[in-house]
Amino acid sequence: MKLNLDIVPLNSWLDNGKEPLIISGPCSAETEEQLLATAKLLAATGKVSVLRAGIWKPRTRPGEFEGIGSIGLEWLKRAKEETGLPTAIEVATAKHVEEALAAGVDILWVGARSTANPFTVQEIADALQGADVPVLVKNPVNPDLSLWIGALERINRAGIKKLGAIHRGFSSFEKTSFRNEPMWDLAIQLKTVAPELPIINDPSHICGNRELIPYISQKALDLDMQGLMIESHLDPSVAWTDAKQQVTPAALAELVDRLALRKADSDNPVFEDQLAVLRKDIDALDDVIIQKVGERMKIVEKIGEFKRDNSVTILQVSRWDEIVEKRTAIASALKLDKDFTVKLLELIHNESIRKQNEIMNTKTSVEA
């Protein structure tokens, strides 16, 4: 499936010659002095294409700092005048959209909490009717690709052709080193169904701490994402929100300098020829894998018939544990990642259960 989005290329609405695109600025606009000082330092690095700042901050619990509000738009306007950097903010209501457009904000983005609610997205889309402004849509908090796609489609149908996505990671019950799990596969799926859609990575919100930002940033670029949104503060130690995930402008410049920017393809004919040979080998192996899975499922069907005829339950926990233990041991010897192996086995096992369940609920010719 390919998405039918009516959009224009990123370089047609933000052509500043810098690669990758770097959107940076404080998590929150706290004071006019803080915002202006940070903006000037970011502009001086020569690495930043767009200045971002949080004006309205949707917080998890009441009583936390929820943004400076509309007055911050005036500060942002002044920062743009003094640095020449286009500006970007998050909007979560129709009123936010109206005020941002009236203040001349250059780029708007829809936050993760808003993306998760189609009613909110539609309200924002309705407010955008007739506007000629770039809009970026963050992935929803929960790992739901359809919600993400739906939000992009709603904004696009409002007439917004300068459209992009922001990958900021997803909430997960599992506690890991990340604030939000990257779940790269969902971002890759979005690129697959909408290859023309620019995707910006937000390592600040994925990481939750500045130490991991370089790693996530490089991986995002290696997956052919078009840019990064990295939070930067004059002095992160005194930031009013998300202090641990913000970097200084100087640290941002150093981080960007260390990133390796790789091409999506190559003009080298020798490289292309060798790549074509390797891909042909991959295709042949993929064909064998699919064939073997098909053969496995034929045996699964026989097992299902045998269990049905002998009134045996579908799920055999001890057998599943045995499969996982043996196959992960083999996979480890072959230098395959354990998590990958378990996920692959689970996919095959779930399909096996589905097939056996169908057979269990099909009467034999004798019973009929």
Rank of each mutant, 00 (worst) to 15 (best):
R279N: 13
H167E: 14
D132T: 11
R168C: 13
R354S: 15
K280I: 01
K307N: 15
R157N: 14
L128R: 00
S266G: 05
A102T: 03
L152V: 05
T60R: 12
L41G: 10
T45C: 04
A368S: 15
L145A: 13
M183P: 11
V277L: 08
S171Y: 12
I149P: 02
A158F: 02
V293T: 13
M225K: 02
G84M: 04
S237C: 01
D126H: 06
I166T: 13
E32Q: 13
F306P: 08
A251K: 12
L190Y: 09
R154Q: 15
K18D: 13
L255P: 01
A239L: 02
I23M: 04
I149Y: 07
G164L: 02
K338D: 15
E358S: 12
P134L: 00
F170T: 09
F306C: 10
Q246W: 04
L21T: 05
T364L: 09
A276P: 03
I314W: 02
L347S: 13
L197Q: 10
I299M: 08
I22T: 01
A260T: 11
S24H: 03
I55K: 01
I89C: 03
T31S: 13
Q245S: 11
K161Y: 10
E153T: 12
I55R: 00
G54T: 06
V133P: 05
L212P: 09
T38F: 02
A102P: 04
V135A: 01
R258E: 15
V133I: 14
G164H: 03
A151M: 06
I303G: 08
W75I: 05
I71G: 11
A260D: 13
R78Q: 15
